[in-house]
Amino acid sequence: MHTRVQGTFEGVDSLQDVPLAAHRYLVGQSVSPEVVISPSPELTSINWKGLKVEFRVANRKDRSSVTMAFAGIAETGTLVMVSSKQSPINHHFLPEFNIAVLKQSKLVDCMENLWPLIGEHPRTINLITGPSKTADIEQTIVYGAHGPRALHVILVRSTC
């Protein structure tokens, strides 16, 4: 479903494989491997060898970001992002390239099964389905309106 909504996707075996996949993706997009990363424990604990990384809030100069998805919704290919001190909101919107890490164990089949997993509502819950787009010029779709031009999902198969 995620590819149908014009996102790209790849699967890796464990969190440790994420940096290599991210590097490969960015190089493939001809983007320098510099990323701003959400300071989530999963992402800070990885060895980001080969990439220039910073764990802080994204600003307009950042071209690429790596974020940790709270969950994914299979029905619509949607990423679920829940804001917190580990997951700033702007990472999803300001950079041109957004790489989202999603654990396979965090996939739910539909939205109805998502809500029970989220306890107290944070400031924002972002349901993101593909890269930013607009059809405001003659009803023809152009990607990268205001948000990311491309959204790449790295699905982590291992449960740990």
């Binding site: 479903m1 149908r4 909504v5 029905e75 619509t76 290919g77 949607t78 804001s83 917190s84 001190k85 509502h121 944070p122 400031r123 924002t124 819950i125 972002n126 349901l127 993101i128 389905t129 593909g130 890269p131 930013s132 787009k133 948000g147």
Partner: peptide, 14 residues
């Protein structure tokens, strides 16, 4: 099937 961004806002930043 789903618009790109569906966001739920709850109050100001925590």
């Amino acid at each position: 099937i789903m618009s790109v961004y569906t966001t739920l806002f709850n109050g100001p930043k925590r």
